[in-house]
């Protein structure tokens, strides 16, 4: 799908570029502050895969539901969760989007219908099916968009959810981010059938592929799939072929893949290829690009300062929000 033209409105192209840069710069800062000991736990970076969230998520409306995984900083950011509250959450602070109870892996924002932040592989898929079931039963037009990695297709939850959504013709968009490795296990080392779209088709679910390194391809593929879901015929599966440039988490020595492979994929990096295209086709100047990057860097610096300055939730609130405070 890489033949599709860049949208001719420069502003929307810039929006996609901005989304990708914001994710990239925010995560680079997160890695730095992880090294400094301010962010702890697991930190799964999305660097390299930015085109997927940046291309897909703006396609959804405010009414739609978005479910993601533990590698969800980018999804949250593009969905509109403020960078300050994402960074504060990674720092574990009270002004974080989950009040410091979730951390990097569990970003939530109910007001933006962003349902996290699920760190059990495949665990978000049944949730998305249920959200879509609710929409269907309420007669509302919203779609549940569910992001997950290709590692999830080995889980029973994937198959049960695909079947249920297809059987009941529910408005789910299954967004599979295929970055080729489930932690350290390559797709061909874990699946007898490596054609992911074939799995969807076995549930009689329409499936299509998009180039996950190309934000335009992602956007076009997502819009096409989304319009089919909105027609009411049931769920659609999209495979985004992408690649994670960084380690799985901060503890990963990357013994399972070749350095050359990583370098080869980096040459297809979604930010520099798209900015080059905008320069060639839409007259983006280097100066404009640098100015944009500087604005993003300033936003990131402000988010880090905000997160650093924010307080932790007091220990006296420890037992809050386990069950409803007012009880049954």
């Amino acid at each position: 799908m890489s033949e599709i033209a860049v949208p001719n409105r420069k502003s929307s192209s810039l929006a996609m570029l901005t989304h990708m840069l914001r994710i990239r710069r925010m995560e680079e800062a997160a890695a730095e502050w992880y090294g400094a000991g301010k962010i702890r736990g697991y930190l799964h970076l999305y660097i390299g895969e930015e085109a997927v969230a940046a291309g897909a998520i703006p396609c959804f409306g405010e009414q739609d539901d978005v479910v993601a995984t533990y590698r969800e900083h980018g999804h949250a950011l593009v969905r509109g969760v403020p960078m300050n509250s994402i960074m504060a959450e990674m720092f574990g602070k009270a002004s974080g989007c989950s009040h410091g109870r979730g951390g990097s892996m569990h970003l939530f924002d109910a007001s933006r219908r962003f349902y996290g932040g699920n760190a059990i592989v495949g665990g978000g898929l049944p949730l998305a099916v249920g959200l879509a079931l609710a929409a269907h039963m309420q007669g509302e037009a919203r779609v549940a968009a569910c992001f997950f990695g290709e590692g999830a297709v080995a889980e029973g939850a994937f198959h049960e959810s695909m079947n249920l959504a297809a059987l009941w013709k529910l408005p789910v968009l299954f967004c599979c981010e295929n970055n080729l490795y489930a932690m350290g296990t390559a797709l061909e080392r874990s699946e007898s059938q490596t054609d992911l779209c074939a799995k969807a088709e076995s549930y009689k679910m329409p499936a299509l592929r998009a180039d996950g390194m190309d934000v335009v391809s992602v956007r076009e593929g997502t819009l096409q799939a989304l319009s089919r879901v909105r027609e009411g015929a049931g769920p659609v599966f999209v495979e985004y072929r992408t690649y994670r440039f960084r380690a799985h988490s901060m503890f990963d020595p990357e013994l399972y893949r070749d350095r050359q492979e990583v370098e080869d994929w980096k040459r297809r990096g979604p930010i520099h290829t798209f900015s080059a295209r905008l320069k060639a086709e839409q007259g983006l100047t280097e100066q404009e690009f640098l100015a944009l990057d500087a604005r993003v860097m300033a936003e990131v610096a402000a988010a880090v300062a905000f997160a650093e300055a924010a307080p932790f939730e007091p220990v006296s609130t420890l037992a809050h929000n386990v069950v409803a405070e007012d009880g049954p």
């Binding site: 249920g130 079931l133 609710a134 039963m137 249920l164 059987l167």
Partner: peptide, 19 residues
């Protein structure tokens, strides 16, 4: 279907969705 994980999870999602 015989999908305990799937339909219980769908119940969780439907509850989140207002049912």
């Amino acid at each position: 279907p015989l999908s305990e994980l799937g339909f219980v999870g769908a119940g969780v999602g439907a509850a989140l969705g207002g049912m």
